[in-house]
């Protein structure tokens, strides 16, 4: 298994879920960490986002795994906050080797009924937030001639999906951004890739709004009903993967074993992608 001893990884959205899992897996393999998350909710997101206390807990766990950690509340929509995080991170650890643009939100609405605000928040966080995160580390990585950037897209970025058109559009956009940046960074020793998860067992889907979306005709349902509905999406018949399963792919892309993989989107998707072109 790849070692990340002496490496520094920046991870956005690290307060919980996949971001926390990536942080802990990098920590266990020897990396130091620069982490951020938001500390407030959004009107257009039908479930709560991380709190400062979530991020603090990630820090505690990562430190217990042996990592040095710099963490702060920073919104990926805020260019100054991200640039400051990167600058201070480089001050603390000397460099950033790996950047994981993971922070994201979900929302539910048909395109016909979607508000400007719902669309705007989605694009601002899930697409522009990835752009701002990756841009913030680009000069540093290009200058050092080394870097591994990984963005979290989604398997819905291989198709259309009703009721989450803004999410789908943002995640397709992430792939376009990743591939273009991969071409721009190719001469600089920097690879840029994406992971495309199917449903992941995190707060993003384990909430009432998403359960209602999956079982629209039911007033009452059990967890089993929910699992059955999610399982129908996946050729490998389980409802969702765990955050650690996504970390496996992220760590592979960050390792030396993937040195000649760039501009790629790796689907950790229980075979969903077997039904799509890519």
């Amino acid at each position: 298994m790849a070692s990340f001893e002496g490496r520094t990884a920046l991870i956005t959205g690290a307060g919980r879920g996949q971001g926390r899992s990536h942080a802990l897996r990098f920590a266990e393999r020897g990396a130091d960490l620069i982490l951020c998350d938001i500390d407030s909710d959004l009107d257009t997101v039908p479930y709560g986002l991380s709190r400062r206390s979530d991020l603090d807990e990630t820090v505690e766990l990562a430190e217990a795994a042996g990592a040095r950690v710099m963490a702060r509340v920073a919104d990926v929509r805020d260019t100054a906050a991200l640039d400051g995080l990167v600058a201070d991170g480089i001050d603390s650890f000397g460099k950033i080797d790996i950047a994981v643009a993971n922070a994201g939100i979900a929302g539910i609405s048909t395109v016909a009924e979607m508000s400007d605000e719902a669309w705007g928040n989605m694009i601002d966080i899930n697409l522009s937030g990835v752009f701002k995160t990756l841009r913030a580390v680009t000069p540093h990585m290009a200058g050092r001639g080394y870097g591994r950037m990984i963005a979290t897209s989604s398997i819905v970025a291989r198709q259309g999906s009703p009721n989450i058109g803004h999410y789908v559009a943002a995640k397709w956009g992430v792939l376009g951004l990743v591939k273009s940046l991969a071409l721009e960074m190719a001469e600089n020793g920097v690879t840029v890739n994406a992971v495309c998860p199917t449903s992941v067992d995190t707060a993003m889907i384990q909430n009432e709004a998403f359960r209602d979306l999956f079982l629209p005709d039911r007033d009452e349902y059990t967890l089993e009903d929910v699992e059955r509905a999610y399982t129908e999406l996946n050729p490998i018949p389980i409802p969702w993967v765990q955050p650690e399963d996504i970390s496996d792919a992220v760590l592979f892309l960050a390792s030396d074993e993937a040195r000649f993989i760039t501009g790629e989107a790796v689907p950790v998707a229980l075979g969903w992608n077997a039904r799509t072109a890519a």
Binding site: A186, P235, A249, F260, I261, L270, G271
Partner: peptide, 22 residues
């Protein structure tokens, strides 16, 4: 084991040629 939930996928150790592709 790390790829147990990846199937039906293409992975391109292609030195980035796939960046010009889907």
């Amino acid at each position: 084991e790390e790829a147990r939930y990846i199937t039906g996928a293409t992975l391109s150790p292609s030195t980035g040629v796939n960046a010009r592709n889907v």
